[in-house]
């Protein structure tokens, strides 16, 4: 356990000294902040104003057609849909060096000869990446809580669906990072590792997007719907927790880490 925590602390510190953590967190804050305010918060408050005005003009015939503003329903799912696209760009930055750099610098040779198992090494590195990612989840929680502070009296955000959305975002990130780890383990070139991770995540997103099209039908549609990470998280963003989605994310994460471990071990038989 000492070895695991030592490795975990080193990885976490390296994210800040390198300084990938700052790059990732700043980019995420700027992009997500901009989308949140410009794309969601302002239109939402506009809508609220319009709705209030309609209510004042009691006889307005449009009255019945304009539903009451519901932050959780209107904003949360599409906000997280947008944020998950940012993840596609940022996860490769988080994972590209994790193992590739050790291979390139040769420091992996020492890891292989220390009394620490490959699994411990991978889990420590994964945990560190997850901690950095969790900071973005906290930022998202702040976005969800913000309307509560702006509007007097609060009561805008429904907490259960909001927590489900945060869970979805966390699971999506955790699975994406584990997929990135595979590519970090198979190459010693960080750019190749980042590019492959990006390509895979983009593909899984495009597939989910395509599955919603009418032109895709039958088996292809079912397949596309079920493999797409973002499709799986959409339900959670809406506040719908399906066991199948939770199992899916769990399997992807564990499976990807298992492949990473196998790939790390392969030097033993490959020579």
């Amino acid at each position: 356990m000492t070895a695991f925590f030592a490795m975990f602390k080193r990885e976490l510190a390296h994210y800040f000294t390198s300084p990938i953590a700052y790059v990732v967190l700043i980019i995420f804050s700027i992009l997500s902040g901009w989308f949140y305010v410009q794309g969601f918060l302002l239109p939402y408050s506009l809508y609220c104003q319009q709705y209030d005005m309609m209510q004042l003009q009691q006889q307005n015939p449009m009255m019945g057609q304009m539903p009451a503003p519901n932050f959780t329903e209107l904003i949360v799912p599409s906000l997280f849909g947008t944020l998950s696209i940012i993840l596609i760009f940022l996860v490769p930055l988080l994972t590209m060096r994790s193992i590739a750099e050790e291979k390139k610098e040769g420091t992996i040779e020492l890891l292989y000869t220390y009394p620490i198992s490959d699994l411990q090494v991978i889990l420590a590195k994964y945990a560190a990446a997850l901690v950095i990612f969790s900071i973005t989840v906290l930022l998202c929680a702040f976005y969800l809580a913000l309307p509560e502070f702006i509007k007097e009296g609060g009561g805008i955000v429904e907490w259960k669906p909001a927590l489900s959305a945060l869970l979805g975002f966390f699971l999506l990130g955790a699975a994406s990072i584990s997929l990135g780890f595979i590519f970090s383990a198979v190459t010693e070139n960080q750019i190749v590792s980042a590019a492959l991770t990006f390509a895979l995540l983009l593909f899984l997103w495009v597939v989910g997007w395509a599955s919603q099209s009418d032109q895709v039908e039958g088996l292809a549609k079912t397949l596309a719907e079920s493999v797409s990470l973002t499709n799986r998280s959409d339900g959670l963003f809406k506040g719908l927790i399906h066991l199948s989605d939770l199992v899916f994310f769990f399997c992807v994460t564990v499976g990807a880490l298992f492949i990473t471990m196998r790939s790390l071990e392969s030097h033993r038989w490959r020579g």
Binding site: A3, A6, P115, I116
Partner: peptide
């Protein structure tokens, strides 16, 4: 060196 020591199980 602290890291190396911990990796080798010293705490």
């Amino acid at each position: 060196l602290s890291l190396a020591a911990q990796m080798k199980g010293l705490g």
